[in-house]
């Protein structure tokens, strides 16, 4: 296990280095921070003073190494807009994003798993057909449009729930439901096909033949193995939820990291964009590390490879 763990840790460290490098070089394309910092109409001398103060007159490789170390410490510089550390601005909003993504992941996984299991166990029935059509539609629907439609029905027409914002549980219902549909559609389809594959395996027939209870065969022999690809999928979905938070938080005016990044893009507040992207990437890398470790627990063959 320790070798597997070490390899995975090294891969995660490499990924974090890669993301920080991408963020650095993209930010150099984005424009000269000194020009963006000074007020309009400042003299070339003022710009040069700031360039020297920020170290922007140094060779690009030296700047890269310096930025690399400060970014690894969590120092992404000051927000142009608010004049305080960019990472602080992003971190403050993280609990809201985590709450929304966590809710969606939890409820979406449960709904998806139940629907996927029903579809696989009730093969060829109306139940399977309904689940599969719903899942196909769920996968084809852009989350932001689904969100708008739910606002139209439940907030504008019926007036049951708020159209956006955060604060009470009522604010969480519509964005949470929207993202849960997205999560459960992917999980239901994958779990169904994974269960159907495993149910055909010889060892399942053997387990049945030796007279084990159907319940035991399902949970111990089928479900456990069918869950392995689903676990990977949950990791991928977690990343899509974090990345997609930019869109869904815009739709529901949810005060999370995604909305901060979006506002920063509109204001060209590059330190905040970088801090936000790096934070979400770091969380995603950690989630994937956990998924890989869980994978090793579920499937001992992986550990020995």
């Amino acid at each position: 296990m320790s070798r597997y763990l070490l390899v995975k840790l090294a891969e995660s460290a490499l990924a974090i280095w890669g993301v920080v490098t991408i963020v650095f070089f993209v930010s150099r394309v984005l424009g000269d921070p000194a020009v963006l910092l000074v007020p309009v109409g400042a003299s070339q001398q003022d710009i040069d003073t700031i360039r020297t103060a920020l170290g922007l007159d140094r060779p690009i490789l030296e700047q890269y190494v310096v930025s690399l170390f400060s970014m690894l410490r969590g120092d992404f510089g000051m927000s142009f807009q608010q004049g305080r550390p960019a990472m602080d601005i992003v971190l403050e909003r993280m609990p809201d994003t985590a709450l929304l993504a966590g809710t969606a992941l939890l409820f979406g996984s449960i709904i998806g798993a139940v629907c996927g299991a029903i579809a696989a166990l009730k093969r060829g029935t109306v139940a399977e057909f309904i689940v599969m059509v719903a899942a196909l539609l769920g996968q084809a629907t852009p989350v932001f449009w689904l969100g708008i439609m739910l606002i139209l029905i439940f907030a504008v027409d019926l007036g049951w729930l708020p159209t956006g914002g955060a604060g009470t549980w009522a604010h969480l219902v519509l964005p949470g439901l929207t993202l849960s549909v997205f999560v459960s559609a992917s999980i239901a389809r994958l779990l169904r096909s994974s269960l159907l594959d495993i149910m055909r395996e010889d060892y399942v027939r053997t387990a049945r033949a030796k007279g084990l209870l159907p319940r035991t065969v399902f949970f111990w022999h089928i479900a456990r193995n069918a869950l392995i690809p689903v676990v990977t999928m949950v990791g991928i979905i977690a990343g899509e939820l974090l990345g997609g938070s930019v869109v869904i938080e815009t739709v529901f005016a949810w005060p999370g990291v995604g909305r901060v990044i979006m506002q920063a893009i509109q204001n060209q507040d590059f330190p905040v964009i970088q801090a936000g992207v790096a934070l979400i990437a770091a969380i995603f890398i950690v989630v994937n590390l956990l998924v890989d470790l869980l994978y090793g627990v579920l499937d001992p063959r992986i550990r020995r490879r």
Binding site: G18, V23, V26, G243, F284, N288
Partner: peptide, 23 residues
Amino acid sequence: MRVVDIQLALPLMLLALLVVAAL
């Protein structure tokens, strides 16, 4: 393959946002 892994560590939507913001 390492480049692929690194790029996969960045959610696609964020990568797209970052690049569109730059270009």
